[in-house]
């Protein structure tokens, strides 16, 4: 599904990703863990097409297509979704209008017709319920004045609505209390399916108690330095990230 090979990316003159490899198959859930500043968000951004990064080497293909050639909206239309670490506030942009525009763009790209108003509303309400979000959200501007927890739940709500093939969740757990974390995790788990893959980026092991990954990778200094099963997450939890420096120095 996703194949990243030898990916190197810069911000300005500074190299952030330094030869990164990652293979994600259909239905798999991969956790990427790593210390702050290791390049987790950079990877998420490069894969989803944000401006400001230059890829200097390597490749990223998604279902056989060269991702790096595509505009961000084309990637989303192919089924890629990024849940932002810091969801952006869009003052004045009505949520319902936004959701309809997003859903219709993606449906159109899939060759499906636009949803009529009634089915759209029914669908939205169903998804809101999964994330324990209130209907009043629909009348508000996108993320504007939302609490931290609301913003994160809103990301997963959008994911539930858009039904991507590959979702990248960038520290969706950070800043959530335990109840909110549970709601978010339930939302994510409800979306797990044999066709849908996920990359769960996190700093802490905590989230992985709720979302069981198939694989765990450790990202440090722009590379994946270790991969394993979920026991690797527990090991990290016990040892912290301190050993990485020692290992890299060796």
């Amino acid at each position: 599904m996703l194949s990243v090979k030898g990916l190197r990316a810069n911000v300005g003159d500074k190299e952030i990703l330094k030869g990164l490899d990652l293979e994600v198959g259909p239905g798999e859930v991969h956790a990427i863990m790593g210390p702050n500043g290791s390049g987790k968000s950079t990877l998420s951004h490069v894969l989803s097409g944000r401006d400001g990064y230059s890829v200097t080497a390597g490749s990223a293909t998604f279902e056989g297509r060269d991702l790096l050639e595509l505009e961000p909206e084309e990637r989303a239309q192919l089924g890629l979704f990024l849940a932002f670490q810091y969801p952006v506030e869009l003052p004045g942009v009505n949520n319902t209008y936004f959701l309809k525009a997003a859903l219709n763009s993606i449906r159109k790209a899939r060759g499906e017709s636009e949803l009529d108003a009634v089915s759209f509303l029914r669908l939205i309400k169903e998804k809101l319920k999964i994330l324990h979000l209130d209907d009043s959200l629909l009348k508000r501007a996108v993320n504007a004045g939302f609490s931290g927890g609301e913003k994160k739940r809103n990301e997963i709500f959008q994911m539930a609505l858009l039904e991507p093939k590959l979702a990248i969740l960038d520290e969706t757990d950070s800043g959530l209390d335990i109840d909110a974390l549970r709601v978010v995790a339930e939302g994510v788990n409800a979306l797990r399916s044999p066709e849908r893959s996920m990359i769960v980026v996190t700093h802490y092991q905590r989230l992985l108690d709720y979302i069981q990954p198939d694989y765990v990778h450790v990202l440090a200094r722009g590379r994946i330095i270790r991969s394993g099963g979920k026991e690797l997450a527990l090991e990290l939890e016990q040892k912290g990230y301190g050993w990485i420096d020692a290992e890299l120095a060796a």
Partner: peptide, 12 residues
């Protein structure tokens, strides 16, 4: 803001 919208499939 522009990137957020585009990442949801909405063209530029």
């Amino acid at each position: 803001m522009l990137f957020y919208l585009r990442s949801r499939g909405i063209d530029a």
